[in-house]
């Protein structure tokens, strides 16, 4: 029981972090950014390269991964999304192509086989029968710190409020003098950073291989949609529902873990496409 509780919390924190980077883009830009998965991938491999191949300190590896994600997000917005903005299928397709291109770039550099990431913080803590790797604990704590920081950033700062305004009504925000392009840039940058850092943690939680981004991407998108687009609290709640369900199912039958998550996502999307906490949009 304790084991489930702890593991559930650890996994959910991770999902929340990954989903949060995605919800920013989805709520501000209204685009299904499939290349978001590529941030996870690039983040994971960047960390691997910097800290395990170059031997830099681990914290530097995480930071550099974040910076790379940020740069990637900005480039993607400037070079790709801006050109096709407004046509949702075009954005989906263009970002899918980009994701696959980045994936093949990773294969080219690092090869096809999966890599083992050394734990960010070595050691294991035992609570009752539950084994908690410090690494996962640290990941969860950092996730929460980022989430809380983000929450206050969006709520309290001028830029954060402008982001909210753009997400609710882009035209209205433009009329009231908000520079939508600047807000978009900031959002894509933050989103890339969060995705890359989420990728580092996710890869150390599971494993690092070129196709690792698809499943967490689907989960992130589903969490965002079900939690309500742009709702930080909703995203947090749903990330915990998915995380705990996954842990509960896998404690019962580990093989069904992935099956169950996908089924849950499909069911909810089909039955409640507006999400559990989303505001109903007029017309």
């Amino acid at each position: 029981m304790l084991q489930i509780l702890i593991q559930g919390l650890l996994l959910s924190g991770l999902y929340a972090l990954i989903a949060m980077g995605f919800t920013l883009i989805f709520s501000v830009g209204r685009v299904l950014n499939l290349a978001y998965g590529a941030y996870l991938l690039i983040g994971g491999y960047a960390y691997f390269y910097f800290s395990q191949q170059l031997g830099l300190p681990k914290i530097a590896g995480v930071m550099l991964a974040g910076v790379l994600g940020c740069v990637l997000g900005l480039l993607k917005y400037q070079l790709l999304v801006k050109r096709v903005q407004g046509v949702h299928s075009a954005v989906e397709i263009a970002t899918l192509i980009l994701a696959v291109v980045l994936q093949s770039a990773v294969v080219l550099i690092f090869g096809d086989s999966s890599k083992i990431l050394l734990p960010i913080v070595p050691g294991v803590e035992r609570v009752a029968s539950a084994a908690i790797p410090y690494s996962n604990l640290v990941a969860t704590i950092i996730s929460w710190a980022i989430l809380i920081g983000l929450y206050f950033f969006v709520r309290l700062t001028h830029t954060g409020r402008a982001m909210q305004a753009v997400s609710m009504d882009a035209k209205g925000a433009a009329i009231s003098g908000i520079d939508a392009n600047r807000i978009n840039m900031i959002t894509w940058g933050i989103s890339g950073t969060l995705g890359a850092i989420g990728g580092v943690f996710f890869a150390s939680y599971t494993q690092l291989y070129p196709g690792m981004w698809v499943a967490p991407l689907i989960i992130a998108v589903a969490v965002v949609i079900v939690g309500g687009i742009g709702s930080i609290i909703g995203t947090l709640v749903v990330a915990h529902i998915v995380g705990f369900m996954e842990i509960i199912v896998s404690s019962w039958n580990p093989e069904l873990r992935g099956v169950f998550t996908m089924l849950l996502i499909i069911l909810v999307l089909v039955l409640r496409p507006r999400g559990l906490f989303g505001r109903e949009e007029i017309h």
């Binding site: 299904l32 949702h88 989906e92 689907i218 589903a222 996908m262 499909i266 999307l269 089909v270 496409p273």
Partner: peptide, 11 residues
Amino acid sequence: GSYFALVTLAF
């Protein structure tokens, strides 16, 4: 729209 694309990917 995007929801359909996502559901097919999940399938």
